[in-house]
Design a protein around this nucleic acid. Structure first.
Lengths: 192, 192
DNA sequence: GTCTATAGACGGATAGAC
DNA sequence: GTCTATCCGTCTATAGAC
């Protein structure tokens, strides 16, 4: 791994568990076992480093293509996504870093929104109902992010101690409902 | 309103939309129209001020007592909670401040966890199923926090532009399901 | 209680030798 | 590319006059 990549990995880890302001360039350098000045050499400033470190990994979106022909699309989706987070520390780190930093940086929040929308559309676009698909995908995102938040960031014991399978079974049908179930209209009524 | 209270209100607002590190004591003083030294006089340091500003408002929990005897407890709960957030800027500010700061401060995360658990138990404890009630309330929390996150912090347009009623109608049945529906067992299977 | 002045630490960024 | 030295701004916190 090149030193440049070591820096990016170290930055992701630190941003992931301390947020932006609490990770210092010096700390990143120390973790990457690299001279602090080298970071400026490659990335000129902290914000550029942040963006480079959090740039979405394109492979990720493709991991969710072609969810069809299963009983429960929601369950299959949740299984793949939560399983992916759980088994792959790098992916999880990237996700928690995005979430943490997005709290205080609007440009990262925008990155997260765009990426999330894109990934959800790629994964679920072919199965979401035609009635206001954006709202449906947005609702799916609330549930997914809620899980990520409680499990990996707030670390609430009730959710942290669940197995992935338990979460998948709980959340899968909910996602199905958001994707294809009835939706309230502008007046807030479910069509009968 | 006493100057002390002005400081607390200003602190909440700034913590709420900038997080902890990016709000300075000077900025808080400026917004409260107060001398910076007065803050130290009352609260000695920034962390104490933070905790004082985010101390849960006890009235809040009582607002959700006695949800029973309705068709859909989840819908009623969502209506009260989301409506409360929406109509009451102070309450919303407190919530977003808690959420934002909890990302980077473990002690605030603990505060949020405890408060959230307490509030949910007070509101829904009497209607949640006997089978693993903590997990059920935790799942409810994931959905609620997910909505708060997407609507008020990430400000994703699909969710931000919904009416409260639309969200309530979408989320109500989901909460009902978490409260009393089937839950996967330790093996990740839904009992048949 | 109110305000000024300043201490003291930290962290991002730069210049420049090698 | 690598490293040292250092500048400069910012922020919390304190001391002390009024």
């Amino acid at each position: 791994m090149s030193k440049r990549d070591l820096i990016l990995a170290a930055a992701r880890e630190l941003f992931s568990d301390k947020g932006y302001e609490r990770t210092t360039m010096r700390a990143i350098a120390a973790r990457a076992d690299v001279d602090p000045a080298l970071i400026h050499h490659y990335f000129t400033n902290k914000n550029t480093l942040l963006m480079a470190a959090l740039k979405p990994d394109i492979d990720l979106a493709t991991h969710f293509a072609d969810i069809e022909n299963v009983d429960s699309v929601g369950t299959e989706f949740a299984r793949r996504l939560l399983g992916y987070w759980e088994d792959n520390p790098d992916v999880r780190t990237r996700m928690t870093a995005l979430l943490r930093v997005a709290m205080t940086h609007d440009d990262v929040a925008a990155l997260l929104r765009d990426f999330q929308i894109g990934a959800l559309r790629a994964a679920l676009g072919s199965v979401v109902a035609a009635d206001r698909p954006e709202v449906r995908l947005g609702l799916v995102a609330t549930q997914i992010f809620g899980i990520g938040l409680m499990r990996y960031i707030l670390r609430a014991p009730q959710i942290r101690d669940c197995t992935v399978d338990q979460l998948v079974m709980a959340v899968g049908p909910v996602i199905d409902g958001y994707l294809t179930g009835p939706l309230a209209n502008a007046r807030g009524r479910v069509p009968s």
